[in-house]
Design a protein around this nucleic acid. Sequence first.
DNA 1: TGGTTCACG
DNA 2: ACGTACGTGAACCAG
Length: 893
Amino acid sequence: MTKKLLLIDGNSLAFRAFYAMYQQLDRMISHNGLHTNALVAFNNFLDQIVDPMQPDLALVAWDAGSGKDTYRGQLFPEYKDGRSKTPSEFKEQFPYLREMVALHGLRNYEKIGLEADDIIGTYSRMGEAAGYSVTIITGDQDLIQLATDNITVNVTKKGVTELERYTPAYIMEKYGLTPQQIIEKKALTGDTSDNYPGVTKVGEKTALKLLAEYENIDNLYANIEDMKKSKMKENLINDRESAFRARKLATISTDATLDLPLQEIEYRGIDYDKLVLFYQDLDFKQQLAKIKALRKSGQIAGGDEQNETQVHVVTLTDTNLRAVTMLGKKVAVHIETTGDNYHIDEMIGFVIGNPEVGYYASRDMTLLQTTELKSIIEDENVVKNVFNVKAQLILFKRLGLQLKGTYFDFLLAAYLLDTTDNDNELSTLAQRFDVYMSSDDEIYGKGAKFAVPDDEGRVLMHLAHKADTLMQLELPALAALKAHEQMHLYTEIELPLAHVLADMEYQGIRINQTRLYDMGVDLQGRIHTIEDAIYIEAGEKFNINSPKQLGILLFEKMGLPVIKKTKTGYSTAVDVLEKLASQAPIVDHILQYRQLAKLKSTYIDGMLSVVYPQDSKIHTRFLQTLTQTGRLSSVDPNLQNIPMRTEEGRLIRKAFVPSEPNWQIFGADYSQIELRVLAHITGDKNMQKAFLNGEDIHAETARAVFGLADDTPVDANMRRTAKAVNFGIVYGISDFGLANNLGISRAEAKQFIDTYFKEFPQIHEWMDKIKQSAHELGFVETIAKRRRYLPNIQSKNFNLRSFAERTAMNSPIQGSAADIIKIAMIKVNSALKENNLQARMLLQVHDELIFEAPSNEISELSELVTSVMDSAVSLDVPMKVDNHYGDTWYDAK
DNA sequence: TGGTTCACG
DNA sequence: ACGTACGTGAACCAG
């Protein structure tokens, strides 16, 4: 078979690659801030076109320098003038492109004084002479002049993976020219992108006509006298020199001096081991997954031996139990479940062990009740490495065991190190530290296909890999936390908090199901009534819950004015409907329907569906490693968004009751915690003074913004405006946002902001400083050194950059407030124990804590909680805590 | 699965 | 010129 030589025009393809994915430029950024769009597209090209070709020889040619220092630059000084500067986002990818090429087994080559074309031209002729079948791939049409029967030129058509194949026959068919005549054509037309002229007024069409008659410009000029008089003839004669110069410029060298012999450019194939490291560096997750899959199916070698550590697992039974007593003082331990909900999901098995002694695993959960295992689990002197300590604490609680000695939780550590892309899966998080193991999806399958494999050995091996991964990760993860100065945050805040949260979740909150059910029946009736009214007003039945159908009815059939549009059609959101309410009675009914339907489906039916029948309680899960700011979130169900703002919705809270007779619900909340944090971290003296004097902060802000003297009464409207400005400041103010919120003009909003910054100058300074610092460091921090990375702060996309800037201002505030209440929770929990109170903390809602307690404890609890919360941390402003209690959550107001 | 809406801080 | 307030979760529709 004929041997194959592959020649690739690196610069032109990289250029195409960059612009093929230009829209994604700002989305495709690796963890170290490198744009990767061209790299991704170029990699696709190598994957789809080059790798399957398996050539014998292969080379990627690059331009060295700008083209100015080639013979073309000397022949014509204006050559390639007027080209816009290469964007820095593209330039930074160059070195990586070359590395990628090398790892795919191709040779890179460049030489000062030569352009990539000339390198390709010369090698193509050398290859042809040596009997190779030559394939050229380029993004530049000019190269088709190189085509012969043995040399095929492929030019990108769309993106970098769709190519158009030019053979001499195809060129003839398409242009009626031989490959050599492509140069002649250029001589006549010139090239605007390379900035050299041909003959004035001669374009593609005229050039083709002339060449059909004269074949080339030598012949044309030899016979020019016989041409009949015309403007074109005049131009040809005047531009003769220019035409011959253009021909030289357009001609690709086929005899350049190259210092790399043909036999040294053999194709070496992909170096998978190094490519994996390279992809990791660039965060090419899909590519990594692909290689992993190939390795698993045995299509390519390697991977497991080098990466996934070989682990020996011993199946634990009641006859070999004694082995675990040899494990010593440091183990990894893990209980595996069938899903995320550790309160109810089935336990698949467990593992315990360390690399020194071994890993012991079993699917028989009853083994954990034996003295051998129980005494390890409950011994706080046996230090444990775990993944998701809160989940493990609860799983052991379900087995009647107390997991003690938890020390390293890789999930918490990974979250503190970088909140972005946290999918909460061990195998993916481990990759950040170059530790590899199979994912749960690979072992159990995804979604509906989830199943525990029949092969018990496979399950136990997976568990052993988890345990081993946790042992391997301890040192590097803790070292990284130290490097971030986050050990205090980890040891003193998140880890103890996980224990507190485990208690809260396990305790759960009692629901009066009858009350909820009765409210549901009442709501259902009212929803029906409104539904009927809506159908009559609409003149037809339709799905009121469908924004699409509703939009068509309101804006097309009824002809109401369109106020706002969404990506997919008309907006029917509250603010829009409220503006339309006066024009048609149906709009008001729809608003009422929406409110009631929301209450029924989310808060009545939704809550009832998650009540545990055994104890009539709801056990939410507080996600501790999800939010970008350090707040908690709450799922299954979300107990952090139970209605409050409308009386109708607030009544839902009557169903949240104490779990013991003669107990009550008690709540304590921080007043204005975010503004206090703002006053503290900005160091603004004026705002601090307002808090130190115990002023109404929004009224005080109003006096400042409206220029009123101290103690002047502030009317409600001014206070409302000032409050909105304060909110805006916390969110990372913009005149647009404030204008929108207050329904005023942007100019007026800007005026407010300017005055605000003048009155609170240190807030202004801080806003500038934090943006600057985010720009330099790539992240912002809270008072407890919680970190949020902001890669988009460098973006040249206005939207993305502005968003990152607002985030830079908001996250330290929201996040520090989160730090404070977390610290308070830990201290409150200890204080409850120390004071032998029966009271239990049940919920956290960002700035408030909800408890249940015996009625006769309430006054002591109130005093204790308030004092612990307001002294949780020491700020430059006082913290204020309000509290309430009653027979239900509703009454704790 | 993504988009829209709406509940909370 | 650009065109957004910060952080969440759940229900529902439509493709």
